[in-house]
Write a protein that binds this DNA or RNA. Structure first.
Lengths: 253, 253
DNA sequence: CTGTGTCTGTGCACTTGTGAACACAAGAAG
DNA sequence: CTTCTTGTGTTCACAAGTGCACAGACACAG
């Protein structure tokens, strides 16, 4: 009976793991302020210096990317955020200039919430505050891992890692719409070398390619070629986001 | 008269920028729980999985480092934290497993504070909460920049950057006690290449070297050889940590 | 079906960085 | 002073990655 109710409520919620994780009373604190929206690829959510006042929750297959602008105009990606999280004022709690550019990589549904409302809800509910603090910690872990990854892992590993990370956030949709050039820029490396890596993946039957997209043929093989960074971060997410609520066992999945 | 009082109070405080930035009433909320201590180089403050319950404020020339453990045992540094900040539960607010190892790089005085006390103080003071949220945002900016830096900047630039960053946090003390090996590990690169880079710096009169230490001869030249990452982050610190208190102008410096 | 612009595959010369090796020097400990 | 450990300078063969160049291929608009 209880699980029945939970399932029903969950179905009404946007397909964002953070929002779905909230207990019904916590969700009720913000539900009426959530605004649903749709975003297109390459849409700009925040630019450096912007006063951050809204938090965006990517839903379903929507995917966003934190980009650090660079002296020579190349924007390097630091982390990828999909429906497992949210972007905008997660750590700062907002009302501060953004440091990075955040853009939509894969279009899809989004939910927006004014940070002032979120702040108010956090003051009312310790558990809601807790969920967001825990997600912030997970996001940080993701960044720690990215920093280390960029220092020591090969371009082949990082290429594989990126595609796996994207698929992990889009229900395993095997088609990843991205040009070699775009992927190379995200990784901060040369395009021709990425093309060559992709070529070897294709030769090994791991990927197929189309103009502007990869189609993953052998997901496990791709994982094997990637570094372990995705897994390390995923483990932290699971550890940290479990156990916010006392009755957590019931709300799993 | 007012500035007089402020100065006097400031002199009593530990030499940590975050603590010094607090207004007298905010500082009073935590002052009696602060415990002074001394830490030695390579002392371990947190290890991955530890339940984080205490925040550490490095004071004076003390310097700490977030290290991400790696599959092959090499721990890569993500960010360096000195007296401009604090480590432990900054983003997560604690009571969660740590993701990184945090070690003392340069020994010196520290101040410890139980996170439960900090949390209580945050609930009592909006401005205190604000100071820590802003520092968390700065720390995040530092990480964003590190991630991008590791992706695109040369080892020469990153070597210079590291030494400059260390000096920025130690009153410009020109002697940096570190072996080539240690620096190489922090950067996640090969030792012999670092030695070569150091050699060119020495040949150009930028550094002198001793066993286990660098002595910076020409700080400006070193800055020129480093990437702009330090500056970008420093700018963000100044923008964000300014203006927490309405009467901020008086408390500058 | 034709043109057009972008994306891709590949070659090449080159730079950056690796990792192992080894001789030697500095410094601490006896 | 001697011994031993650890750090440093340097060499070498090699791997990884760059940046440019250019031909061809694809997809799309007309």
């Amino acid at each position: 009976m209880l699980t029945q109710t939970v399932t029903t409520l969950a179905r009404e919620r946007p397909y964002n793991n953070l929002l779905r994780r909230l207990s019904p009373p916590d969700y009720a604190l913000i539900a009426s302020y959530l605004v649903e929206d749709q975003a297109m690829p390459n849409e700009l959510l925040y630019r450096p210096g912007d006063d951050v006042q809204i938090v965006h929750f990517p839903c379903g297959p929507a995917l966003t990317s934190y980009l650090v602008p660079n002296e020579d105009g190349r924007d390097v990606e630091t982390i990828l955020v999909g429906r497992e999280g949210a972007v905008g004022g997660i750590v700062s709690e907002g009302f501060l200039p953004a440091y990075t550019r955040i853009v939509v990589k894969f279009g899809g549904p989004f939910v927006r919430l004014p940070l002032s409302r979120l702040a108010a809800a956090k003051l009312q509910s310790k558990t809601l505050r807790n969920v967001f603090a825990r997600y912030a910690d997970c996001m940080l872990a993701q960044m720690f891992q990215s920093t280390a990854c960029n220092a020591i892992h090969s371009i082949e590993q990082r290429t594989a890692k990126w595609i796996v990370a994207a698929m992990d956030r889009t229900d395993g949709e095997p088609t990843v719409p991205l040009t070699h050039e775009q992927l190379a820029t995200l990784l901060g490396v040369g395009r021709s070398y990425v093309s060559r890596v992709v070529q070897t993946f294709r030769a090994e039957g791991v990927l197929e390619t189309r103009r502007g997209a990869f189609m993953v043929r052998d997901f496990d093989a791709l994982k094997q070629r990637s570094c372990l960074c995705n897994e390390a971060v995923k483990t932290h997410f699971e550890e940290v986001l479990r156990g916010v609520y006392p009755t957590e066992q019931a709300a799993a999945g």
